[in-house]
Amino acid sequence: MLDLNRLPGHAPRNKLGFSLARTAAEVQEAQRIRFKVFAEEMGAKLPSAALGMDIDRFDSFCDHLLVRDNENDKVVGTYRMLPPEQAVNAGGYYSETEFDMTRLVHLRNRMVEVGRSCVHPDYRDGATITQLWSGLADYIGKNGHEYLIGCASISMGDGGHYAASVYDKVHKLHSAPAEYSVFPHCPLPLHALNRNLDVSVPPLIKGYLRLGAYIAGQPAWDPDFNTADLFILLPVSRMNPRYAKHFMRQPS
């Protein structure tokens, strides 16, 4: 689940840094901030709620990107990445729990999946987002992944009308070629929703699209998180250099 969509203004922070989690304790730091955002803030129903952490079966196969405030050593943002060799060990990608990805089978050994992205409420500013993008770019570059995939979530707090309107706004210009299409297991009922609202595209999704990502199918409904999830497919070779420089630059 991705929750970089609400970014109220805060003062920039110049003492943030990113790294990959190297210990079980660092992975738990990521799982705690995910719980804070997804369960406490967004109301997600998590089976690991009693532990105060967001834990699922994919975590042990993923690399976990941490953004840390070096002044207080606090983890303030996270992404997790599931590389192709570990997706095999995990029995598939997380996205396959929401989408039929049969048409992407020929890309499997070149795809890295990103997800479970979130930022602490006090750090939702450009500096934190830049660190997350920079860490992700560093990871992709070092590992030579050719395709980035993931589920980008949209709140369904209004029953789904906002999500349906966002989908209608973006899919016509950014739909994937038919051979890259995926199909939701639990589709958002677009026919029953108002798809004509005047909406702003969530910042994270807008960022993916500016980089050159495709929307590869209709949105899926995730009842546990009460979100509509768009399947994002970003061929690294298609990445827009102008926006890649902006979104994935290293902060000075």
Results as ranks from 00 to 15, higher is better:
Leu209Asp: 08
Glu26Leu: 01
Val201Leu: 02
Gly135Met: 03
Asp158Leu: 12
Ser181His: 10
Leu104Thr: 04
Gly77Ala: 15
Asn226Asp: 13
Ala25Thr: 07
Gly159Trp: 05
Val75Thr: 15
Leu148Arg: 03
Arg238Cys: 10
Ala49Asp: 09
Ala30Cys: 13
Asn89Val: 14
Tyr180Pro: 09
Leu4Lys: 00
Val112Phe: 02
Ile232Leu: 05
Ala87Gln: 00
Cys186Asn: 15
Leu193Ala: 14
Leu51Lys: 13
Pro219Asn: 10
Val37Gly: 08
Pro241Ser: 12
Phe61Arg: 06
Val67Ile: 11
Tyr79Leu: 00
Leu148Thr: 01
Met81Lys: 01
Phe231Leu: 11
Tyr79His: 01
Pro251Leu: 13
Leu66Trp: 15
Ser200Glu: 15
Glu71Ile: 03
Ala127Met: 04
Pro251Ser: 11
Met53Asn: 03
Glu26Gln: 07
Lys74Asn: 14
His64Val: 09
Asp3Trp: 13
Ala127Arg: 05
Arg124Ile: 08
Asn14Lys: 13
Leu197Ile: 14
Phe38Gly: 01
Phe183Met: 14
Glu71Leu: 13
Ser237Pro: 04
Arg32His: 10
Gly92Ile: 15
Pro251Met: 10
Leu209Arg: 05
Cys151Met: 10
Ala228Phe: 06
Arg68Trp: 11
Leu211Thr: 09
Arg57Cys: 02
Leu204Asn: 06
Leu51Phe: 11
Cys118Asp: 03
Asp100Glu: 11
Ala213Val: 06
Gly160Ile: 01
Val37Tyr: 08
Ile129Tyr: 15
Thr97Ala: 15
Val170Lys: 04
Gly217Val: 06
Leu20Thr: 05
Trp133Gly: 07
Lys45Ser: 12
Leu233Trp: 02
Tyr94Phe: 02
Lys172Leu: 13
Leu136Thr: 02
Arg210Met: 11
Met156His: 10
Arg195Phe: 11
Leu2Thr: 13
Ile149Glu: 07
Phe99His: 02
Asp59Trp: 00
Val119Glu: 08
Leu104Cys: 00
Pro47Met: 00
His120Ala: 15
Leu65His: 06
Thr227Arg: 03
Leu197Lys: 13
Val88Met: 04
Leu107Arg: 04
Gly92Met: 10
Pro202Asn: 07
Ala24Trp: 05
Gly17Ala: 15
Val236Phe: 09
Lys45Thr: 01
Gln250Arg: 14
Gly115Ile: 05
Phe18Lys: 01
Asp122Val: 01
Asp56Glu: 09
Phe58Tyr: 11
Gly217Ala: 12
Ala228Gln: 01
His171Ala: 11
Ser117Asn: 02
His174Asn: 12
Val199Met: 03
Asp222Arg: 09
Gly9Gln: 15
Arg32Trp: 04
Leu209Phe: 10
Gly217Ile: 10
Pro219Ala: 10
Trp133Pro: 02
Ala30Gly: 00
Leu65Ala: 05
Pro184Thr: 05
Pro47Trp: 00
Val76Pro: 07
Gln131Thr: 07
Leu2Asp: 08
Ile55Lys: 01
Phe58Glu: 02
Asp138Ile: 00
Tyr243Asn: 05
Cys186Pro: 06
Leu20Lys: 01
Ala163Glu: 04
Ser60Asp: 12
Glu41Asn: 07
Val105Asp: 09
Asp100Pro: 06
Met248Ala: 12
Ala137Met: 06
Glu146Val: 07
Ala152Gly: 07
Leu190Tyr: 05
Glu40Thr: 07
His145Asn: 11
Asn72Gly: 15
